[in-house]
Write a protein that binds this DNA or RNA. Structure first.
Lengths: 248, 248
DNA sequence: TAGTGGTCTAGACCACCCC
DNA sequence: GGGTGGTCTAGACCACTAG
C-alpha cells in the first residue's frame, strides 16, 4: 500500500484500498448489511490517513457496493442490489450475470462522411470522415438488438473489422487498443415499431415494439467520440441507476 | 461563507461555494468551455481551503456543469450538454425545458396490501399496507404516460389525494411534506405493446409501442420506498446519463 | 455520553500539459 | 519550467445516532 515505492503502475492508495475492500465484500468475508469497520479503524489498520479511507469508501459508494449513514456507520449493500448495480451500462456484464453468453455479428464496417444530423450531435464539421459499424448483439447466439455506431476518432487512429471481431466489444477496443476512455454518455430513450429490417434481423413478429436508445458518448475531455443508435426487442431489459433528483 | 457563525441552515461551505459558482455559470458570467479560475485562486478569493474548493468542483462535475482536465484546468460544460444533464430524472424539469407545461391526473388513490411480487422488490412482508397511486402524466394537457406507484412509507406517515394534487409532484411531496429523500433508484427499461387501457388513456392507435420503465426507489438508508411502473407513448423520450463503464 | 460519519484546514508532493 | 489538477497527511471540530 505504497505508491511512492515500486511506482510500477502507480495506482493511487485509495484505489488500492477500494480494490481490497471490494474483494473482501465480493468474496463474502463480510456479510450483507453488516457494518464495515469505522473509518478511523480502517485508516489505522491499512496505515493510511482517514481521508484516503474516505476516498475509497466514496468510490465503492458510487459503485453501489456500500453506503454510509451519518452517525451510524458504513454498510454493505445487499447482494441482489449489488448485482443489479454491476449490470448497469454493460451489455456484456449484464448478459453474463444472467447466465448468457454475449456475442455480436458485424453487418456493416465502413468509413463514411458525416451527414448534417450526426455532425451536429458529435459537434464536428459535416463531411468529417467517421467509422460506421452496424452490429447485431447476441445472447446465446440469439439476436437481441441492433447497434449502429458512428465513431469520430482522433486523426491517424483507426481499427480494422478483424480487430473489432476479435475483441468482441467496441468499448474494450476503444480502451485497450486506442487508449480512449469514455467518461460520460447522454442517452435519449423511447419506443418505436420494428421496421422490416428489424423484424428480419431480430427474428421478431411484424408490429413488435422496440426499445430505441440513442447515445452520445464523450471522452474525458468531453469531446463527443461516438453516436450510437440501439434497437432492442421486447425480451431485452435495459438497466439503469438514477442518482440525480431534480424534482420528478 | 461561514457556517459556524449564523448556524442558521448550516449549509456546508463547499455547497455554498458550489451554489455561487453554479449561479455564475448559469447567469452567463462565464462562457462555455472557458476555464474556471484555478483551484488555488478560488480558495484564496473565497477564503476557504483548496480542499473545500475541490469538493465544490466535484459536486458541479457530478451535476454535469463543469469538468476537470489534469494539468489543463477546469472547464464549463457547453450549454446544450448542461441542459440535457439537467433534464435527467425529472419529468417536470424536462418538460419545462422543452417549453411544455407538465401536469398530472390522478386515476387511482388507495391503500392496498402488498402482493408477493411487489413485496419482493420492496423487500417487505406480503400484506404490508401500501399507498397505491395511478396517474396519467400530461404535457400541455396531452396525456404522455401512465405511472403506477406503490409506496411503502414509515409507520404513521401518509398523505391525502388532495395533498398530491396540490403538489403536482410525488417527488416533491415526499421531500417537502414527508421528509423522505430519495437517494438511488434502480430501473429496468424495455418495450411493450400498448394494451387496450393504455390506448384509451394515452389516446394512441391500436398496436402502438410503449416504453416500459420499472423503478425501485430507495431512501438514503437504502430502504426501498417506492416501486413504480411507467408507460410512455412513442412521443416521449426518456433522458439518461451514463457514468459507469463495465465493458459494453 | 460514546462512537460514528461529515466538514474544514494548511501544507506537501506528484502527474500532467503546454510553452 | 511554470502552472494546473490529483493525491496524501495529521489534526481539529461538528452533526447525527444510539444505548
Amino acid at each position: 500500500m505504497d505508491p511512492t515505492q515500486s511506482n510500477e503502475a502507480a495506482v493511487p492508495l485509495y484505489k488500492q484500498l477500494a480494490d481490497t475492500l471490494r474483494q473482501q465484500i465480493e468474496s463474502g468475508e463480510l456479510n450483507d448489511q453488516e457494518p464495515l469497520a469505522p473509518e478511523r479503524e480502517l485508516a489505522l489498520h491499512y496505515k493510511v490517513s482517514r481521508d484516503t479511507v474516505r476516498k475509497a469508501i466514496r468510490l465503492l459508494d458510487e459503485e453501489g457496493m456500500i453506503y454510509s449513514d451519518h452517525g451510524r456507520g458504513t454498510f454493505i449493500t445487499s447482494a441482489p442490489l449489488r448485482d443489479m448495480a454491476k449490470a448497469i451500462g454493460s451489455f456484456t456484464l449484464d448478459t453474463l450475470r444472467r447466465g448468457g453468453v454475449p456475442g455480436q455479428k458485424v453487418l456493416v464496417f465502413e468509413k463514411v462522411t458525416a451527414g448534417m444530423a450526426i455532425a451536429s450531435v458529435l459537434n464536428i464539421k459535416p463531411d468529417t470522415v467517421l467509422h460506421h459499424v452496424k452490429r447485431v448483439r447476441l445472447i446465446d447466439g440469439e439476436p437481441i438488438g441492433i447497434q449502429d455506431s458512428w465513431l469520430c476518432l482522433p486523426k491517424g487512429q483507426g481499427f480494422s473489422r478483424e480487430q473489432l471481431e476479435r475483441k468482441g466489444s467496441l468499448y474494450r477496443l476503444l480502451v485497450e487498443d486506442l487508449q480512449i476512455q469514455p467518461s460520460v454518455a447522454l442517452e435519449s430513450i423511447g419506443s418505436i415499431l420494428a421496421c422490416e429490417q428489424d423484424v428480419a434481423l431480430l427474428n421478431l413478429d411484424k408490429g413488435a415494439p422496440l426499445l430505441l436508445c440513442e447515445r452520445v458518448t464523450m471522452s474525458e475531455r468531453r469531446v463527443p467520440i461516438e453516436y450510437c443508435e440501439m434497437r432492442y426487442g421486447p425480451s431485452y431489459r435495459y438497466k439503469n441507476k438514477v442518482t440525480q433528483w431534480g424534482g420528478n
